[in-house]
Amino acid sequence: MNPDTTTTTTSTTPPTSTACPAEQPATTQPATELSAEGLTLGYDAAPVVQDVSVAVPPGRITVIVGANGSGKSTLLRGLARLMTPRRGTVLLDGQDIARLATKTLARRLGLLPQQPLAPDGITVADLVGRGRHPHQRWFRHHTDADDTAITAAMAATGITDLAERPVDELSGGQRQRAWLALALAQDPDVMLLDEPTAHLDLTHQVDLLELLTDLNATLGRTTVLVLHDLNLAGRYAHHLVAVKDGRIAAEGPPADVLQPGTIESVFSLSCAVIDDPLTGTPIVLPRPPSGGRRAG
C-alpha cells in the first residue's frame, strides 16, 4: 500500500465549460432506449395500468399527461422498477429491467420522486453528493469522477453558490433544482421525473422546464416526466403520451395528441386548441360551459 496521501479539497467555482460540454447532443454513445411491453401494474385487485406498450424515444423528452388517478405516476413508477409488473416487461436497451442487476440499474436509471423530503438541516452539496451513491463502494467513497459529477451537476442547475446552504432554507424553485442536481450527479442514462413542477409558481415551472430542455439538448439523455399542465407539456415535450384509465389513449408529437377530440375523451374537457403565438406549440383553451364570454 502506498503511503497515504491526504488531500484537502476546497470548493472552487467550476469552469463553465464543465456544465455545457458541447453544443450538440453528445453522440459518443447512442441514447438509451426505454420501453414497456404489455405492462400491467397495480396495488390491489384492480390494475392501475393495464396492458401498456410504449416506446420512449431515445434522447428526447417524453411527457406523460392524464387526469388525476389515470395511472400516469404509476406508469412512471413501473418504468423505474418501483413496482413489480403483474404482466409484461420494461426494457432498457432491450434488456428486461427485472433481470438487470440492481446495482447496474441504480447507475443507469435516475428518478426524481414527487415532493421528496430532504433530511433536516443538510446542505445542498451534501444532498447533491448523495446522488453519487450507486458509483461508490464502502472502501471507495470519493473519487475524482464523483467530484467532477457533483460540480457539473450543481453548475448545470445554477446552484453552485448555494452549496453550503441548508436545503430547508431554499425557496421552492431552488430546492427543486437541488433535487434535480442530485439526479444529474447520479449521471443515469434515463431520467424519470414525477411532476417536477408541482407546487412551483409559473415562473419557476417554466424555469425548470427550460433547464430540462437545455440539459436534454446538451447531454441527449432520455428523459420522461409526468406533468399536469397541458400547455407546458405541449411546449416542452418532444413526445407526448396521454393516459386514460390506465391505458394509453394517444401518443405522438404534441401537436398531434393535443387535439380537441382527444382532450375531450382523455380529460372529459370540452376545449379549443390554438397555436401559441410565441412558439407555435398547441395551447389548450377550456370552453366555458355557456360557450361564450363569462364577463363584461
Partner: peptide, 20 residues
C-alpha cells in the same frame, strides 16, 4: 465539489478513497 471541511484520503493507487 466536496463539502467544505471534507478530507479525502487516497490510498492503494485510488482503489481506496475514504471521505472523512
Amino acid at each position: 465539489m466536496t463539502a467544505r471541511d471534507t478530507v479525502v484520503v487516497h490510498a492503494a493507487r485510488g482503489t481506496v478513497a475514504l471521505r472523512l
